[in-house]
Write a protein that binds this DNA or RNA. Sequence first.
RNA 1: GGAGAGAUGGCCGAGUGGUCGAAGGCACUCCCCUGCUAAGGGAGCAUGCGGGCAAAACCUGCAUCGAGGGUUCGAAUCCCUCUCUCUCCGCCA
Length: 425
Amino acid sequence: MLDIQLLRTDLDTVLKRLATRGYAFNALQFRELEDARKQVQTRTQTLQAERNQLSKSIGIARGQGGDASALMETVAGINQALKGEEIRLQAIQQQLETLLLDLPNLPHDSVPLGRSEGDNVELRRVGLPREMDFPVRDHVDLGEKLGLLDFESASKLAGARFAVMKGELSRLHRALAQFMLDVHTRDHGYTEMYVPYMVNAETLRGTGQLPRFEADLFAVPREQGNHYLIPTAEVPLTNLVRNVILKEQDLPLRLTAHTPCFRSEAGSYGKDVRGLIRQHQFDKVELVQVVHPERSYQALEELTAHAESILQRLQLPYRVIVLCTGDMGAGSSKTYDLEVWLPAQKTYREISSCSNCEAYQARRMQARFRTDDNKNELVHTLNGSGVAVGRALVAVLENYQNADGSITVPEVLRPYMGGCERIEA
RNA sequence: GGAGAGAUGGCCGAGUGGUCGAAGGCACUCCCCUGCUAAGGGAGCAUGCGGGCAAAACCUGCAUCGAGGGUUCGAAUCCCUCUCUCUCCGCCA
């Protein structure tokens, strides 16, 4: 959510900056609603003030044993007028809220302008793809030949875009998650959290998934207030500070959690149909930071480095790109994607996305901190994958494959694999 | 799942229809007093939004006592629905 004051005082700038993301804001409708709001609100509040005043007088008159029937008649008249105004005001404010909740965040000045993926800018490449002097297999071939990856069973159990893993492959998957959590908690100062995998609508509104992106979520219908399966641990972790006023010295908060993530991926059919790249259910170790607004861009660099450190330790080649204005998620002011090298596709694929949401989520959530001079200020929130476990598994399989179809276990994972150095049929 | 009790500011807690946005206490901030690991006195201290106002300070209004509806001239207080917490019973990994 953007600051409505900014829209009132400097709408043109807001429009320009939103346009860089390809978002056309209905400024005319906004102006009309704002004008109406101002009028109706002022009128309503004046009437309310009169009513409150007179009601008080009634109480006083009654207390002195006087007659208040004339006063009561006046108030009845005011209430008559008030009723309509209140309904109108509510309707206007609801429309304004709908308009505001739909607005994406403003991009940071350093974000490159662009319309789509193709305009993202590569910042750096780290690590060299390994030379392979044998026919390179993709992770599906590798996993199925080893007898450890089973999409047939998955589709029987649940349908398309699910996976069943077995034996050492499941263990490798678990090892990856454990390794990531240990690195972030031991070396990067994050606190490990365990959180609900189902959340309510208010929580999803806090981080911005609702109301715009309901189609991407799995809902769990209930009689009263649906639950939703979390699309990422960003949602529960960030919402921990919803409606909270933190102490300034509590900042920054650094939280991490390993959770499954559920995406209905509506509209993604035909894309990445093969393998583990795009699933309805996948695991992720998420990083969330809640920081002082002055420090959020520094924190974004740090958080991105924390995610990178996982790929470095796994010795997976990757590149860092900065998303252009047109490709960023709605809540983000600036996003770095980490893309890992996949030799079978001969390309880099997203494995982490690290964003600074500035006060966009904080304003929705009313997440604040108290400053030294006792004022409440919105925090800034950041989140990033540290990293996606399923895709890390894909990357390890493909980058660590051997000519005979076996997989060398990356050194840092061996302690989590009971010392196992190689996965073979 | 059944029975009962409850939800009030950062915390504790009073308040069952009328100057109540809310006593009192704790915590916190500032000032005064006092030479000593302390005590005393005074002042301030909820949030959101609107208007004055373009902004700060300030003034002023509206809303908010778990949430949403209702009754009333007037609701923290009465009624309805829901959510959550606690206690007991049942069930359960």
